[in-house]
Structures are given as C-alpha cells and as structure tokens.
C-alpha cells in the first residue's frame, strides 16, 4: 500500500545497490525535506505507515527502503547503508540540507550520516537509537539468531514479546494479538541487519554530530533500552532529550506522540536549547 495519494516512488542507485525511494512532493518544493530511515527488518511503509503521512501534512517527506548486500558481496558495514542515504538525498534533493529522522537501526545510520556529512544535515532526530551494541542487546540478538537458524515457530512470538511494551500488549484483544504475531512472521528477511546490529559502533560519528538533535528514548524498550538514548543525549553536543512511554515499537505504539514531539522540533529546533530535557505535559 502506498502512504498517500501522490507520493512518488522511485529507484536510486549507489555504486553497489538499488534503493527504493518515496517522496511526498517533488524537488521543486522549497521546504527542507525530512528524510525517514527505517529500522531492522522494516521498510519505509512498514515502519512509517503512520509517521510518514502525519509528517507529510506539513512537511516534504522522503523515505527509502534500505537494501542489504547480496550474499556474494559479504557483510555490510555502516558505509554500505550511509551511502544509500547519500544517494537518495543527492537524487531527490540535490544541493541542499535535509532533516533526518532515524528509527532504531535507522537511527544508527542517521547518526553516522550526520557525523560524516555535517554539511548536509540541518537537524536530526534519533528515535530508539544507539551508539555501540552492548551485551544486553547481544544476548537478545543471540536468542533471535538461534531461533532463526532453527526455523523455530517461537520466533514471531519472541519478536512481538521483545518489540512491544507490556501495556501495549495488554490492551490488545486476543485476535489482535494473534494478528500481531502472525504479521511478525512475514516481513522482509532481517538476518543481515541482525548480524550488523551485533557489532554496531558509531561512537566516532556520534562525536562529530553538529546539527541540533532530538533524542527520543522509549521507557519500556527491551531491544534498545533507554540507557542508549541517554548516552546519545550525553554524546551529542547540541542535543535535547525526551522519553516516551512505549516499547521499542514506538512507531506503532505511539505514533501520534512521536509526531507531536518531532513536528515542532523540525519546524523550529531553536524552541529548545542544547541539554534540555523535554518534559511531556500532562494531558
């Protein structure tokens, strides 16, 4: 399914890969584009079905589907994915700066891109991102890999169990929960990205980030627990921080809250100052 009527789908090539891109308007749009980078095992549509159309109401939004290397090309490194972002930005929005919103694995790539290509990034949002994989993450990754290797029927339930917050799972009816597990069994192959995730270390890039940055941590995140977001907040000079009560799957659990935080930041990053901890008002 497409995000919205009028969204243009295209193909952009790096020297090594073909990447599908999505653009809510066109290159003549004078507004700073917002580039969305999806997470592990996702695609632009599967992770940003909510956030893309929400943001597209008032912004030009660009997204892409990350491409993994073919088996013969070996394991991807950070540059493999950063290149794809560079290519999409150069093709759809040449000679201008962009705002980048990365989620999960996409936040890792976004941080690397922002550190390496400072001149291109006007502002940055890192949602449920991390700098260096730690042993808590490696433990989960290990369980996932074994279940995957064994072709275990327990894998989808395990993924749902680790992706969503207890509160979210409790609020589903039994058929809804079953649907959630069933849909975790489909979706693109995530094995390559999962191997990549085991050894992430973008600390050098993170230290180089100059753009005003909003770091979003999720309080009930078991896959990238919020201590990672807090470290990003500590590691990025011009960062502000906010927490959402959600599991790792915040793009599905709390898309409206995410939008409510991201939209004003993108519109005017100077609304908050470096070091600010944004407290969510009571509703």
């Amino acid at each position: 399914m497409n995000f919205l009527p009028g969204v243009r789908e295209g193909v952009v090539r790096t020297s090594r890969a073909r990447v599908t891109s999505y653009d809510s308007t066109d290159p003549d749009d004078p507004r700073t584009p917002v580039v969305l980078l999806h997470g592990t095992g996702g695609t632009a549509t599967s992770h940003f079905w909510a956030l893309f159309p929400m943001l597209a109401e008032h912004h030009r939004v660009i997204a892409l589907d990350f491409t993994d290397p073919a088996e013969a090309d070996g394991e991807p490194d950070t540059s493999w994915y950063v290149e794809q972002v560079e290519a999409v930005v150069a093709a759809l929005s040449p000679h201008r700066r962009v705002a980048v919103v990365g989620y999960s694995f996409g936040a890792v790539v976004a941080a690397a891109f922002a550190g390496r290509r400072q001149e291109l990034v006007e502002s940055l949002v890192l949602v449920a991102g991390w700098t260096r994989s730690d042993q808590q993450q490696q433990l989960r990754n290990e369980v996932w890999s074994r279940l995957h290797a064994e072709g275990s029927s327990a894998l989808p339930a395990f993924m749902v169990f680790t992706a969503y917050s207890p509160a979210y799972l409790l609020a589903r009816t039994a058929p809804e929960l079953a649907d959630l597990v069933a849909s975790a069994a489909t979706g693109r192959d995530r094995a390559t990205m999962m191997r990549f995730n085991r050894t992430v270390d973008v600390s050098e890039d993170v230290a180089q980030i100059a753009a005003p940055t909003l770091v979003v941590g999720c309080t009930a995140d078991q896959m990238v627990p919020p201590h990672h977001a807090r470290l990003l907040f500590g590691g990025i000079r011009d960062a502000r921080y906010v927490e959402i009560r959600s599991g790792h799957a915040v793009v599905h659990e709390r898309p409206a809250e995410l939008y409510h935080l991201i939209d004003p930041f993108l519109t005017d990053p100077a609304r908050t100052t470096p070091g600010d901890v944004i407290l969510q008002e009571a509703v």
């Binding site: 399914m1 497409n2 995000f3 919205l4 009527p5 079905w49 909510a50 159309p53 929400m54 109401e57 509160a167 609020a171 009560r245 709390r254 898309p255 409206a256 809250e257 409510h260 509703v283």
Partner: peptide, 18 residues
C-alpha cells in the same frame, strides 16, 4: 496512553489510506 491512542485516530479523518 488513552490520549495518544485517540490522537492516532485523527489521520483517519484526513483520509490516510493505512
């Protein structure tokens, strides 16, 4: 949580396909 659940229904009214 209830508030943000309601907010996430507004895009229905904008006719967003998903």
């Amino acid at each position: 949580g209830l508030f943000w659940d309601s907010e996430a229904r507004f895009p229905q009214r904008l006719g967003v396909p998903a």
